[in-house]
């Protein structure tokens, strides 16, 4: 049986060099964005989704666990950060800390429940858990139900950087994205990451080698959920609102779509996928529900003919590791 990630090329020395080159190119491109006149709001939004998808990809691409509820981390962290900034008047760095800590706690609790089942059941359980949270947020007063939390003050990061200025905000978001990306890169290439990959390839064998696979999976889930929460906290500063849309199952589906289009189990795939999908949504915004239909069609096409995704296909063609 083929596993969900066909992009599992072993990483020799040359692979790491390829990844370094690609990382430098990506960072250079992202650094010059404000000079090019590209709409910074679009790029910031795409960066938040890129980080979110990278966190999701850590779980499925390297741990083989498909979470269909990752929107719960995006939305929860968004609510926590928004509440801390607006109601408690926290500084941005503390607001982000509240969001990240909250999603870490959420990841521990949901992770302990979800990892009790494998494969297809894991996907259904995470979906059900996020739907549970959706209804909780619909009813608790602090989220303001259908309206969401709006008009969130952006404030001064560390008392120095004015986040209301688009260029400053852009570089702060970029720094956050790069920090998260490097943390994921480090995790994948650590001994922990290697064990994770071995669990994905053959869990029984990993168990027989003496690894407590449940602990590895739980740790990967917590790390993934926390980083997804970090993306949600950053997104609050860009969108200046926190709403039910971000906790809904359609958002979880979008995260899966972004990663699938970019390439499951590739390092840069989720980033490419985020820019492609967010750009598509921008251009097709006027077409109403046809966007949903097109997203569905992309799902179908990707699964049937294009399982490696954009970056996966490129890496496969050039026999590189990306």
């Amino acid at each position: 049986m083929t596993t969900i990630t066909e992009n599992s090329i072993p990483t020799p020395r040359r692979g790491i060099r390829d990844e370094m080159v690609a990382f430098v190119i990506m960072t250079a491109l992202l650094l010059v964005v404000p000079l090019t006149g590209v709409y910074p709001f679009f790029v910031m939004q795409a960066l938040c989704f890129a980080l979110l998808a990278c966190a999701f990809n850590l779980l499925i691409g390297y741990g083989g666990l498909l979470s269909f509820g990752h929107a719960m981390f995006l939305g929860s962290a968004g609510y926590f950060t928004a509440h801390a900034l607006k109601v408690w008047g926290f500084a941005p760095e503390l607001g982000i800390l509240v969001g990240v800590a909250g999603s870490a706690v959420l990841a521990v609790v949901t992770g302990l429940i979800a990892i009790r089942r494998q494969g297809i059941y894991f996907a259904m359980i995470t979906l059900a858990l996020s739907q549970l949270l959706f209804f909780v947020y619909l009813q608790t007063p602090f989220t303001h139900g259908e309206d969401g939390i709006q008009g969130i003050p952006q404030g001064y990061l560390f008392g120095l950087f004015n986040l209301a200025k688009p260029t400053t905000l852009y570089y702060v978001i970029l720094a956050g994205f790069l920090a998260g990306f490097l943390l994921i890169y480090r995790t994948i290439n650590s001994p922990f990451g290697e064990v994770l990959k071995s669990i994905r390839e053959n869990e029984q064998r990993a168990i027989s080698l003496g690894y407590k696979t449940d602990q590895y999976k739980l740790l990967a889930y917590i790390l993934s959920g926390t980083l997804a929460g970090f993306a949600g906290s950053l997104k609050v500063f860009v969108a200046q609102n926190a709403s039910l849309t971000d906790v809904h199952w359609t958002m979880s589906g979008e995260i899966v779509l972004i990663t699938l289009v970019g390439g499951l189990g590739t390092l840069f795939g989720p980033v490419v996928g985020a820019f492609v999908i967010i750009a598509m949504q921008q251009y097709l915004a006027g077409f109403g529900q046809w966007v949903t239909v097109i997203q569905g069609a992309i799902f179908v096409i990707c699964v049937l003919t294009f399982r490696r995704g954009i970056v996966g296909e490129i890496a496969h063609y050039f026999k590189r590791s990306l």
């Binding site: 049986m1 083929t2 596993t3 969900i4 499925i60 498909l66 269909f68 494969g119 297809i120 996907a123 589906g253 899966v256 699938l260 109403g288 529900q289 046809w290 966007v291 949903t292 239909v293 997203q295 569905g296 069609a297 992309i298 799902f299 179908v300 990707c302 699964v303 049937l304 399982r307």
Partner: peptide
Amino acid sequence: LDHLYGLLLTFGMALIIQGVFQN
């Protein structure tokens, strides 16, 4: 293929069907 691809494919089909009817 892995079971999960079936979930992803049918999820896409659900989006298409529901989107068309919503339109």
